[in-house]
Amino acid sequence: MELFYEIEGDGSPIVMIHSGGVDSRVWRYMVPELAQSFKVITFDGRGTGRSPAMQEPASLVEDLRKLLEHLGLDRVTLVGHSMGGQVATDFTLSYPSMVEQLVVIAPSVTGFVYSQEFTNYMTSVNAAAPDISKLVELSLAAPIYRSTMASPHRSFLSEMHAHYMTRVFTEWTCFEVLWPEPPAIERLEKIAANTLFIQGTIEWPDMYNIAEHFKRVPAIQFATIKGADHMLVLTHAEQLANCIQHFILGEHDGQILLI
């Protein structure tokens, strides 16, 4: 297996898929909580952390499938954050028999048309390339990082972001990611797994639109963490872990609201 991965704990398997711009270290505060009850698998996505750089067009969904086959896991719970939620959603649609339950945390989704506000932000960040420090500064200045950048996690997030950007501009020779067709946004009602959608209240308006689309998933619960921004996996790790544990164990009833 090419990808770097780690396993902690015993029990039913949970696979954690991190967001873009960071690596699997982002789960460091959630894993100890979840590993008390489950076998928790974290890994660095292709081109991030300690996994190989992007050298050719890659399917992150197929990377995940190969990892599960390597580990001998036939059926797992997926927990995906941001773009990791996009990977988890597409994987669930592509390999439904392999997914016991699905948890998406502030996810992106293939086929979603983002707002002008978000695309303008991405354009301004990308214009700073290849100046790593400027890329990190502009990227993390977004309002969706306001809570995290005012917290003790600021330096850790900045370090992970800088490490990611450095790898992108010094090691990657290909930037093409392959996604299943048709886009997931056109097929959300086909998700058979019990699903939990979690988000904070400090987000792009786009996230609320994505949540509206996820209401088409037949068996879905929603959780909101007040005061949390896009990096709630760092700032609200204990609350997230508890929420996920209750969901997996079936200790939920209707709308879930975290205060």
Rank of each mutant, 00 (worst) to 15 (best):
residue 143 P to G: 07
residue 216 R to P: 11
residue 235 T to P: 09
residue 153 H to C: 09
residue 211 A to V: 13
residue 162 A to S: 02
residue 208 Y to D: 04
residue 139 S to Q: 07
residue 149 M to K: 02
residue 142 A to E: 03
residue 236 H to G: 00
residue 165 M to L: 04
residue 210 I to Y: 06
residue 216 R to Y: 14
residue 221 Q to V: 12
residue 168 V to T: 11
residue 159 E to M: 03
residue 155 S to G: 04
residue 178 L to M: 04
residue 200 G to Q: 08
residue 170 T to P: 02
residue 189 E to V: 10
residue 245 Q to A: 08
residue 233 V to F: 05
residue 198 I to L: 07
residue 217 V to K: 01
residue 241 A to V: 12
residue 205 P to C: 06
residue 188 L to C: 07
residue 146 R to W: 13
residue 182 P to Y: 09
residue 201 T to C: 08
residue 159 E to D: 12
residue 200 G to R: 01
residue 185 I to Q: 05
residue 224 T to S: 15
residue 213 H to V: 08
residue 218 P to M: 12
residue 183 P to S: 07
residue 144 I to P: 02
residue 234 L to D: 01
residue 162 A to V: 01
residue 173 T to A: 05
residue 150 A to N: 13
residue 207 M to N: 11
residue 198 I to W: 03
residue 217 V to I: 10
residue 151 S to H: 01
residue 192 A to C: 02
residue 139 S to L: 07
residue 241 A to Q: 12
residue 213 H to A: 14
residue 161 H to K: 10
residue 172 W to Y: 08
residue 243 C to N: 11
residue 198 I to N: 00
residue 184 A to K: 02
residue 224 T to P: 10
residue 183 P to E: 09
residue 233 V to R: 00
residue 225 I to A: 08
residue 148 T to W: 00
residue 238 E to N: 14
residue 213 H to L: 11
residue 212 E to S: 06
residue 200 G to A: 03
residue 156 F to G: 05
residue 209 N to V: 07
residue 189 E to C: 08
residue 244 I to D: 00
residue 224 T to R: 12
residue 206 D to N: 07
residue 236 H to S: 01
residue 175 F to R: 14
residue 155 S to P: 00
residue 233 V to N: 00
residue 190 K to H: 07
residue 181 E to G: 14
residue 170 T to Y: 02
residue 204 W to L: 12
residue 229 D to L: 07
residue 220 I to M: 07
residue 169 F to A: 03
residue 203 E to Q: 10
residue 135 L to R: 01
residue 197 F to E: 05
residue 209 N to S: 09
residue 221 Q to N: 08
residue 173 T to L: 03
residue 226 K to H: 09
residue 136 V to K: 02
residue 137 E to N: 15
residue 169 F to P: 01
residue 188 L to S: 03
residue 138 L to Q: 13
residue 189 E to A: 15
residue 202 I to C: 09
residue 214 F to D: 09
residue 137 E to V: 10
residue 180 P to H: 04
residue 176 E to D: 06
residue 144 I to L: 06
residue 165 M to H: 03
residue 169 F to K: 05
residue 140 L to Q: 01
residue 150 A to Q: 12
residue 222 F to S: 15
residue 178 L to V: 12
residue 143 P to D: 05
residue 187 R to Y: 06
residue 212 E to G: 11
residue 215 K to Q: 15
residue 150 A to E: 13
residue 183 P to I: 11
residue 184 A to H: 04
